[in-house]
Design a protein around this nucleic acid. Structure first.
Length: 269
DNA sequence: CTCAGTGTTCAGTG
DNA sequence: TCACTGAACACTGA
């Protein structure tokens, strides 16, 4: 789930819970999820206070009072939970930060694609990962400049965190649906009208998703995401995979190796 | 039992 | 080195 709106929601949750806390110790179930070795990480965190919460795309960056930066990436299934009692430890809590006030913050991640480690600073991390501008901050001109000469499918480029940071598979489909652009259209074939719609759709989809705290069920009825079956109980099979505009069946293809939903009527090839 | 998957990275090709 | 494609990664749940 964690695309930009989820990570922004986690960031706000963190600000209301773990921000300001001082780390007592750390529990790590599987060292393969660390990008900094355990001893170094424990050393850097012990006695350090969490002093700030930032986000670049899907990357979550926590300032430490010791001047280093803690970086969390949620992979495909990451989440956070702040709680006090051991019996409230969520299922799949892979890494647990214990605070001096007795509370804990769990990094939950059933599929273990998430990563936690240290960076020198936010800026150093951005450069190391070569992250593009956050998807909420990219301008129309920047977007046009970085996509306009590329001959890959526009969807693949939206997913490239080096071009713009924060868009994942579901939001890429939603953005292209709202912008009425065929997902496999080559970026260098896009008209300036299409770039304009694309840029507006990125902002519209992300802002809407953040307002709803990334609860897909609350997204507008006009969103494609309801057809994806993100929650099996929320949608009857007969209603699934139908365009919210035309009620016609959606098309499902692979673009850049990723499952892609779109409506051939709204997004002509 | 098999398989797809919300993300990233890397090997391979041109 | 760049642009692009496709596989691999670890694990759960359908």
């Amino acid at each position: 789930m964690p695309e930009l709106p989820e990570v922004e929601t986690y960031r706000r949750y963190f600000e209301e819970t773990a921000l300001g806390q001082t780390v007592a110790h750390l529990e790590v179930e599987d060292q393969r999820q660390l990008t900094t070795d355990f001893d170094t990480l424990q050393q850097a965190l012990k006695g350090a206070q969490f002093t700030g919460a930032h986000r670049i795309g899907k990357h979550f960056l926590i300032n430490l009072s010791t001047s280093k930066t803690l970086v969390l990436h949620f992979g495909m299934t990451g989440d956070l939970a702040y709680y006090r009692d051991a019996e409230d430890t969520p299922r799949f809590a892979r890494i647990v930060f214990h605070f001096q006030n007795g509370f804990r913050l769990a990094f939950i991640d059933s599929r273990k694609f998430g990563r936690v480690g240290l960076a020198e600073s936010i800026e150093a991390y951005r450069q190391e990962k070569r992250l593009g501008p956050d998807a909420l901050d990219i301008s129309l001109l920047q977007l046009q400049a970085s996509l306009g000469k590329r001959k890959a499918p526009v969807k693949s480029l939206l997913l490239d965190q080096k071009i713009l940071a924060g868009i994942g598979n579901w939001i890429a489909d939603e953005v292209l649906f709202q912008a009425q652009i065929f997902p496999a259209k080559l970026a260098n074939q896009l008209s300036s009208a299409e770039f304009k719609r694309l840029h507006a759709a990125i902002l519209y989809v992300l802002k809407t998703a953040i307002e709803e705290e990334a609860n897909y069920g609350n997204f507008p009825k006009t969103f494609l995401i309801h057809a994806r079956g993100w929650d099996d109980s929320a949608l009857k099979p007969a209603e699934r995979q139908v365009c919210p505009q035309h009620r016609t069946p959606l098309n499902i293809i692979k673009v850049g190796g990723r499952t892609t939903y779109f409506c051939l009527v709204c997004q002509p090839q």
